[in-house]
């Protein structure tokens, strides 16, 4: 087994645990490279099927290419799609810096969706290498009744024994990609032939490394216009992946506050 085989086997194990243990579960689908790999892994785990809905919390500020991709993939991959809107930004905590406040709209939209569909499990495609706060996450991560993350007192998790039983009113976040890196995502995308949005490929010396809302996501300088070139670029780079995501860089604790409140 090579490194990618091991990552895949672990993710499949996690998805199958979640599917067995959690009754009302949905997979968050941001349309980006990570959640596409996650859907692909679900099809591996469940032999071509995705036996739970995928959920897109729509800010209506995504790139047009992303919406087009969504509509194509729902048909092509036979997905059950839950589509939910975010509330207006005026309803979001005004003490957050502007970009974080914009990102926090999605948290509110997610909380509303969890309540509306009575979900007890949310599969999210976060990775430890994306961001230092995410590096401290568990694979099965309990959330309070208001969706909040008690990061100061997380339960122990070892030997692939997961904490899967929760009090009523709370839910679990399941993170099947937690142990992957950005480079792993691209290596696997290439090996498996997973379609991706072409915003990731360089045009005019710039490409998107990470896709979020149009207004708070910036392209980074790059000439990588093929999968092989992206992989070569990532092997050499020392620029962090989320350099183009404004809300990570506004204040020291902006991202920590977002996550503690239930952001992915």
């Amino acid at each position: 087994m090579d490194h990618l085989d091991q990552l895949e086997a672990q993710s499949v194990f996690i998805l199958r645990e979640a599917f067995n243990k959690i009754d009302r579960m949905a997979m968050l689908w941001s349309l980006g490279k990570d959640s596409n790999v996650m859907i692909w892994l679900a099809r591996k785990a469940f032999f071509g099927h995705v036996p739970f809905p995928v959920m897109h919390i729509d800010t209506h500020r995504k790139f047009p290419e992303m919406y087009a991709f969504r509509d194509w993939a729902v048909r092509e991959w036979n997905l059950k799609l839950i589509l939910e809107d975010c509330p207006p930004v005026e309803e979001v905590d005004p003490s957050l810096p502007p970009a974080a406040r914009s990102a926090a709209r999605k948290t509110l939209g997610l909380k509303n969706a969890i309540r509306k569909h009575a979900l007890t499990g949310i599969i999210a495609g976060i990775r430890r290498d994306e961001e230092a706060i995410r590096a401290k996450e568990r694979v099965f991560s309990p959330r309070g009744d208001a969706g909040q993350w008690d990061f100061r007192d997380q339960p122990p998790e070892f030997w692939d024994f997961f904490n899967t039983d929760l009090p009523p009113g709370t839910h679990l976040r399941i993170h099947p990609l937690l142990h992957w890196t950005e480079l792993d995502i691209w290596l696997y995308t290439k090996r498996e032939g997973i379609p991706v949005i072409d915003l990731y490929f360089a045009k005019n010396g710039k490409r998107y490394r990470s896709l979020g809302d149009k207004d708070i996501t910036n392209p980074v300088p790059s000439t990588a216009s093929t999968l092989d070139e992206i992989i070569a670029e990532l092997k050499a780079t020392r620029t962090p992946e989320r350099a183009g995501r404004a809300m990570d860089h506004e204040t020291e604790d902006a991202f920590e506050r977002l996550r503690a409140d239930g952001y992915m």
Partner: peptide, 21 residues
């Protein structure tokens, strides 16, 4: 579907460069 880049599922010859370590 124009916005989606079709990708061959067989790895190309330059596999060594993208082999996981």
């Amino acid at each position: 579907m124009a916005k989606v880049l079709p990708i061959p599922s067989t790895p190309p010859q330059s596999a060594a460069a993208s082999m996981p370590r």
